[in-house]
Design a protein around this nucleic acid. Sequence first.
DNA 1: TCCAGACTGAGACTCAATCTCGGGTAGGCT
DNA 2: AGCCTACCCGAGATTGAGTCTCAGTCTGGA
Lengths: 154, 154
Amino acid sequence: MSGVSAERWLALADRRLREAGYRSGSARSAVIELMAREGHCVLSAQDIVGRLRQAGVGSAATVYRALETLHELGLVHRVDGRDGVARYEIADPDGHHHHFVDERTGEVWPFEDEELERVIGSVAERLGVRLLAHDVTLRGTAREDTPGAPGATT
Amino acid sequence: MSGVSAERWLALADRRLREAGYRSGSARSAVIELMAREGHCVLSAQDIVGRLRQAGVGSAATVYRALETLHELGLVHRVDGRDGVARYEIADPDGHHHHFVDERTGEVWPFEDEELERVIGSVAERLGVRLLAHDVTLRGTAREDTPGAPGATT
DNA sequence: TCCAGACTGAGACTCAATCTCGGGTAGGCT
DNA sequence: AGCCTACCCGAGATTGAGTCTCAGTCTGGA
């Protein structure tokens, strides 16, 4: 997600919060700014707590509260780790993606695939259910022999 | 999974453990039996601990050790809960399935879809990664078409 | 039978996440 | 501007899943 889009997300977050009747506060604002800056890839709640503590704001409770609020407003997605750690990323309003987890390094890379979305839609139809959300998580290892492997960049 | 198949899984587990050089022990056997009996749908680790404690065997440490061993041998799958709770189910040797979670009732339904598997395979190929596992979790509501049910998508 | 090494279980420990509550602050009202 | 109420914040206590440790027990081959 580009910087421009991050700006847009920040504005969106601001608006939604205000519309939902929330006031502004230093801690939540700090969380939102951090997410806009670095939340394009998954950030663990603990990461966020750590970053903000460095900056001298926020406490665990506050960060979790802020993230829960953002999640309720649909501004962030929660990605469940295999290790009992909650991870968050900003919800891209014009895009939907899934995750590949490298089993060796624990790194998480996003990807999207149109056909995958289509098939999931048809599966839901076949099952006769109304879909509200769906997660696809692939686990494995990046193939070093493939130059296009998603490991080249952070 | 049927009772017959549960028998088969039990035998398979027995064989794989022996082949891998494990000895038999009361606690692990109890975990395996419980999984064969009730593990066709997801069981949380805590559930298992509780059941076995009722029966007077096993401790938390032992149960987690046993489940880890079974997971390493590919005998069970781990399903990550949204709540930081590890859930397990027996790995059906002749079938791979995913889960639909009813958001209203919390019920979990397994399903399988051949095309979904195929698309996931091709996505992995496109990404240039070696796939070790993959989870697909659909969330939504069963469609008995309740008027007034939450209707958003994605 | 003997014995090395694997298995077990109670309890301490770690750490993410939540709860509590006193104090601070935003922002509407006069 | 000053006040006041309701919301926001943060330190610390608490919960609870999962892991670690270690001494005692048991399996299974020699």
